[in-house]
Design a protein around this nucleic acid. Sequence first.
RNA 1: GCUUCCUUAGCUCAGUCGGUUAGAGCAUCUGACUGUUAAUCAGAGGGUCCCUGGUUCGAGCCCAGGAGGGAGCGCCA
Length: 464
Amino acid sequence: MSVRRSSVEALLASQELDREVLVKGWVRTRRGNKYVQFIAVNDGSTINNLQVVADAEKFPEETLKDVATGACVAVRGTLVASQGKGQSVEIQASEIEVLGKADPETYPLQKKGHSLEFLREIAHLRPRTNTFGAVLRLRHALAFAVHQYFNDRGFFYVHTPIITGSDAEGAGQMFRVTTLPDQNPPLNEQGQVDYKEDFFGKATNLTVSGQLEGEVAAMALGKVYTFGPTFRAENSNTARHLAEFWMIEPEMAFYELEDNMGLAEDFLKYLVRYALEKCPADLQFLNDQYDKELLGRLQFIIDNDFQRLTYTEAVEILKSAKQKFEFPVDWGTDLQSEHERYLVEKHFEKPVILTNYPKDIKAFYMKLDEDGRTVRAMDVLFPGIGEIIGGSQREENLEKLQQRMQEMHVPEEELWWYLDLRRFGSAPHSGFGLGFERLVLFVTGMANIRDVIPFPRFPKNAEF
RNA sequence: GCUUCCUUAGCUCAGUCGGUUAGAGCAUCUGACUGUUAAUCAGAGGGUCCCUGGUUCGAGCCCAGGAGGGAGCGCCA
């Protein structure tokens, strides 16, 4: 009775056989005959199941009947070397307790595969599948690696606000946050909703980026990063966008664009290497089930330098490309997905860092180049994902920044505190944003971003 | 928001030219089998053909509108 519960992962790795063990988990399958039953139990600690062997005569028929796919069980027994092929150890059961039944007639998950679209409709149960177990363990490993990486290199984790009072971050449509009543909200003299009456005394939104606040911290702590949820109310309907996603935004004082690129490349390689080291079984499963080139592609990322070139050079390459594009390439316009894909997947066949974009297609805070036409921006483009990182050296000169804000109609009044960073002790600094789900998408080889976050938020969908 | 495809059993799908009682595999249930590995074998049950309206003697199939989903594009991370 004093046996403590072991994880499936620990038991499968155990060298210590013929001892009493206790395992608790969810039944994946049961098969067998009237003499012997085989129950595959998974507790989430690993993608692998533990095989429980039950001599049918020892257990009441009702108990075994309840040991159905999806049921939760506690099994006590002896850990023994397996007589069958396919696993090295198994449990010879002495006690089976069904902690939670799962009616086979109505339990939606089967032991056979389901489409990812169907699983999206049962997001509360899909973590129990091999696929989502693997994705969620990888997601955790990558999140942990983010903190590990920055902590080891002297970065400080700063918590930037989720509710923001400025709507000028320039990164997209925002979700309004309000406690005003839906019916008959207070109106101002112009007949518009009067947000002076609102909870914060002004209009507030969910953040689209922690960058501006990150810069505040970098101008004091030197090297910082944020890692938190961000929100975009864009009506984006693609496999690469979410309305709620997690973003990692490092911001470093005294880093120029070159340093920024170096950090981005080293960081991405570290994360991929970490996943390969910590989650080999999960990655092997995803490789076998979804994407036969996944492991090779991950290794390739680690082993090769990213191709660095300027926007202008990229435009030259695209113009002389034999391939016909749906959209024409012209200096001054932003590259289309097809152009980025050509560069990454056809021309260079490796990750690409594009720099020095025309100023008119980039954000107001990016540092102007000497020529006055381009800015010190960098986008990291990955195969299959497109833009995984967007970053830049920031404009540290007050007058130039104010000039850019005027040109791009960014209200100075709202960002007075941001301008103060340039008024008092300004310093060259750089940073970037990494969409966490795009990273998970790349590392897992999944095709749709909605399948790499437990509860995806996207237009017309906030179930669960 | 745009383009395009899809919606038939719990799941994945087939359904011919518009024609009688809508099919398959898997899952489920029942039975067989003394070590299974997405077990195997035999049998059974299971349908609002997405919704609304229309055309027609007759609609799963044709038409219109709506809803939901996928892929691609745009916006971006």
